[in-house]
Design a protein around this nucleic acid. Structure first.
Lengths: 105, 105
DNA sequence: GCGTTACTTTCCCGACGGGAAAGTGAGGTC
DNA sequence: GACCTCACTTTCCCGTCGGGAAAGTAACGC
């Protein structure tokens, strides 16, 4: 099981959806992500760059048919970070259902 | 079951933890929240004000012992918003484990 | 070489969150 | 009843962030 670790880089809603989408796919194309997440070219490009710089995503340019396409996918690091973030979110939510307890020092 | 509804007001990490903590409690005191969430006076006060203006939280001043204390709790609206947000987060995460599908228009 | 496609980068902006510190109001003290 | 303290609140300020618009760029196709 992945260790819970809240990830501020992943948390913002756009990136959370983006990473979740990538987590569901093997590779995902730029156009697919753009439509699915309803983002502009620049917004998506910037988020992918951010994630790539963090080492969470890798991209690859290739020819699909006779069109150049960019594909992206999560790295293992990215997948671990995403899983860890989900665990952290669960912990927060569980903290909401369980009675309030002392946080560990 | 609460309907999934992503809530940008609740989502940011500080408020997510704050609302989750309030969801776990009946009433929670300012000092408790401050320590538990590791926030400064001003930061906590501002977040509470934001949540109060959104109708998600109510506050009450009273004497506890001989000290004045502020207590806060979630309103029904706030609790619904929180539950809805959790459902929305689950949907995002489930979207990550299930194969990518078309989003409803 | 020129246009098109598929992004990428730059420029700009408004929103946001937090620290520091000044402000406020209710009670307690003398 | 003036003053002090406590428990927040508000203001001021700043750095960061995300997004739109539009200019830039690289790889083809012709």
């Amino acid at each position: 099981m992945t260790k819970a670790r809240f990830d501020e880089l992943i948390h913002p809603s756009t990136r959370l959806s983006l990473v979740a989408t990538l987590a569901a796919a093997d590779w995902a194309e730029f156009a697919f992500l753009k439509e699915r997440l309803d983002l502009s070219d620049s917004a998506l490009s910037k988020q992918l760059t951010t994630l790539e710089e963090a080492g969470y995503v890798t991209t690859e340019r290739r020819l699909s048919g006779n069109r150049r396409k960019l594909r992206a996918r999560l790295t293992d690091t990215g997948r671990n970070a995403f899983n860890g973030h989900i665990e952290a979110l669960k912990a927060i939510v569980d903290g909401a259902t369980a009675p309030a307890a002392e946080p560990p020092t």
